[in-house]
Nucleic acid binder design. Structure first.
Length: 266
DNA sequence: ATGGTGGTGCAACCA
């Protein structure tokens, strides 16, 4: 049996409900994790998504900004919303699902983008991002009796070929050394596997986001890998495939991020 | 070096 989990920064779930439905009709993931839903719980379009088979929906919403949701075909247990940095932002939600005799905690993150200036002395948003990443270092992938999967828009492209030009991006927020080293340290300390890079070698370019500001995003192809799928070490051998649906960037009224789907053998 | 586009929700902020 296969089991698939998609992560997608949707940049307003209400505005983009039609392409969420288009994606679901095509990919039919067992679990869909969304970021930047940009609404509170009362405004979330529960009914049309439940009708597509996602009877279990949990979310951490916020008016106008941020917001994360997990839509699932299987029950979600022991849900939790962590307030990173204690600022009241809706940037994390997690829950446990059970599959093939395993208990798996699924974390869905929306890490702060961090503003334009990569200097916490003059840009508090960059400081907030670094503090957020620091706090993520406490996350352990391997817990007694529970496996883990972490997905989301982490707003950092950690490896050289996660950006179109490593050299030209070194002072650009999302690829500065303090961020990329911080994120790699979150992975190392927590015992997390980078499943996208388990599937696609680190020597190949791999992007999940293309700016809205490019004249022709596809021709320029100046992408970044900002969206990630991580797991505890026990799930690594069970990964069947990773699909980055690049064509979704060209859909009607697209998000600037595309869906990333991990399929497991369990 | 600069400005480019798109979201929320009606001005300014965020990405």
């Amino acid at each position: 049996m296969s089991f698939s989990i998609t992560t997608w920064n949707i940049n307003s779930v209400r505005l983009r409900l039609p392409i969420v439905q288009q994606f679901i009709a095509r990919a039919r993931p067992d679990i869909l994790c969304l970021q930047e839903i940009k609404c509170r719980e009362p405004e979330f379009p529960f009914e049309p998504l439940k009708e597509m088979g996602y009877s279990h929906i949990i979310l951490h919403g916020q008016k106008g900004y941020h917001g994360v949701a997990i839509l699932s075909k299987v029950p979600l247990l022991e849900d939790h919303r962590q307030d990173y940095c204690g600022v009241g932002d809706a940037r994390h939600i997690s829950a446990i699902f059970e599959r093939g005799g395993r208990r798996i905690r699924l974390h869905n993150f929306y890490v702060p983008a961090g503003g334009d200036e990569p200097d916490r002395g003059i840009n508090p948003k960059f400081g907030h991002k670094l503090d957020f990443v620091e706090e993520m270092k406490a996350l352990r992938a391997d817990l007694p009796g529970t496996s883990s999967i972490l997905v989301g828009d982490l707003n950092i492209a950690p490896l050289e070929h996660d950006v179109w030009s490593h050299r030209q991006m070194l002072k650009i927020v999302s690829h500065t050394p303090v961020e990329t080293e911080g994120l790699l340290e979150v992975m190392r300390q927590g015992g997390w596997l980078d499943l996208m890079r388990q599937h696609v070698p680190a020597s190949e370019k791999l992007y999940t986001w293309w700016s809205y500001r490019a004249k022709d995003w596809e021709a320029a192809d100046r992408g970044r890998r900002l969206d990630h799928v991580w797991s505890s070490s026990d799930l690594g051998p069970l990964l069947e495939s990773i699909e980055v649906l690049k064509e979704a960037r060209g859909w009607e009224r697209p998000s600037d991020h595309v869906p990333v789907t991990a399929t497991f053998r369990f």
